[in-house]
Structures are given as C-alpha cells and as structure tokens.
Amino acid sequence: MAHITVTVDGTSYNGEVEPRKLLVHWLREDIGRVGTVVGCDTSNCGACTVLLNGRSVKSCSVLAVQADGCEVTTIQGLSDGNEWHPVQTAFKECHGLQCGYCTPGMVMAAVDLLSENPTPSEREIREGLEGNLCRCTGYHNIVKSVSYAADLMSAGPTKGAK
C-alpha cells in the first residue's frame, strides 16, 4: 500500500491505496466522487476525463499513486454550488447531451480546451474534443454548446441559475 494526499475539488484527501488502483476507481470508490464515470477499457472514450493540475487527463489511465501531491478537478467541482459553470450552462441551453453518460468527461475536456483557446473555431472544437466519444448526440449540439460556452465566458460571469 502507498500513502497519497490529493486535493479533489478543493478538499484535501489522504489515504492508503494499492499502487494498481486507477485514479478513476479511487475517486469513485474511495472518496465517493461518482460524477466521473468509466466508459471503456482502452483509454479511448474520455468519459473519465478530469483535470489533473489544471489539464485534462483520462483518469482511467493514471494511477492514483501518480496523483499524489496533485490537484484534481472533477465534474462535481466545477460549480460553486449556486451557479453552473458556463460550460454546464451551455450544455443545458444547447441540448448538448442525450443519455448524459459522456457528459462529465465531455464538459471537462471542453473546460480544458477553452482554458487554452478561449475562442475556438468549429474545427478546433471538434479536434479539441477528439478524445471524447458520444454515442447519442452526433456531436453537433456538443460543438454548439462549447461555442456558446466560449461566448458566455468572454461576456463575463453568467447568470445560469442552478
């Protein structure tokens, strides 16, 4: 067993983990952050995407021990509890989801994309979300959502009531 300390969504957690434990399993099973989901066994789908020290990663492809000392943001840490994050507002407004399974990862990948490129073109959005698969929407509304989120974010704080 190894001892780790990880800050998740602003709260510091520590505990003993088996080195083979994947970050996503630690988030879900050990500390109850079940907003982040697992969709595949091959690192392809992106449903498990979280931010690790501010950058998107697939949490099924990182060991929990590798996150020791790091800061993780999951879908559950995006909103302050009162207002949605603009990307969440945009997904709601533009109908950027159907079953919702890909959404936690899709939103985190979009947050990462917009932090690097606040005004992406449609092509840049499609390429930026390349690592996230959606079986329902056909992607069009997801692309619209991210584009709308970019507008919301450049316009300043949103009024998206939760």
């Binding site: 950058r55 990663v57 697939k58 492809s61 990462d112 390349e130 690592g131 996230n132």
Partner: peptide, 9 residues
C-alpha cells in the same frame, strides 16, 4: 498523436 488528454500525460 492520440488526443489532447493523452498528450497531456
């Protein structure tokens, strides 16, 4: 190579 999240790691 791959996608942005994989390129971050």
């Amino acid at each position: 190579v791959a996608d942005p999240a994989i390129r971050h790691r």
